[in-house]
């Protein structure tokens, strides 16, 4: 008599299914790569739609454009720019991972290394990038400290 197979619930798969993002869950890095690629792609596309309209305003309604740019330069705007940069960088790096495997199918066996490698590049470029975008909030503090050191004769 054949024994009934054990019931295994793949919670990640259930989550993905209910998010409506995946229809053929097979798990592990490839699935996360695909899900992030789709989400980041849609996010960058949404910004591109906004950005073409806003740059049109630079000619069509310069005052509205300048007001919007003041928002882009605000703390909330800068955090959103960091998120945009993260989506753009992830999509670019994972796109390269896909392209490497398309052009060089033997790399398929190393696809997990390529995935983790792309995250290393992501953080090595992304963290300094985020710090540069937030420069208005630390530049004054650095200038203050160096100024104080100069006044007191330490520097």
């Amino acid at each position: 008599m054949r024994r009934a197979p054990p019931i295994v619930v793949h919670w990640h798969g259930v989550l993905m299914r209910y998010l409506g993002l995946m229809r053929s869950y097979r798990g592990r890095e490839g699935s996360w790569a695909w899900m992030f690629h789709r989400i980041s792609g849609i996010a960058v596309w949404a910004f591109v739609v906004l950005h073409i309209i806003d740059i049109y305003l630079a000619g069509g309604d310069p005052h509205a454009y300048d007001d919007l740019l003041r928002f882009y330069a605000s703390p909330v705007g800068r955090v959103m720019e960091i998120l945009l940069g993260a989506a753009l960088l992830y999509h670019a790096l994972n796109g390269m991972r896909i392209l490497i495997i398309d052009l060089w199918p033997a790399m398929t066996v190393h696809h997990r290394k390529l995935w983790w490698g792309s995250w290393i590049i992501f953080f090595c470029l992304g963290i300094p990038g985020a710090i540069i975008i937030l420069r208005p909030y630390w530049k004054d503090a650095i200038d203050g400290v160096t100024g104080m050191l100069r006044i007191t004769g330490v520097m």
Binding site: Y65, L69, Y72, A73, R78
Partner: peptide, 15 residues
């Protein structure tokens, strides 16, 4: 975002 900064990017600056 790195070479320039959004705080300087008015429509006049773009032109």
């Amino acid at each position: 975002h790195f070479i320039f900064d959004p705080s300087q990017q008015t429509s006049e600056w773009i032109a």
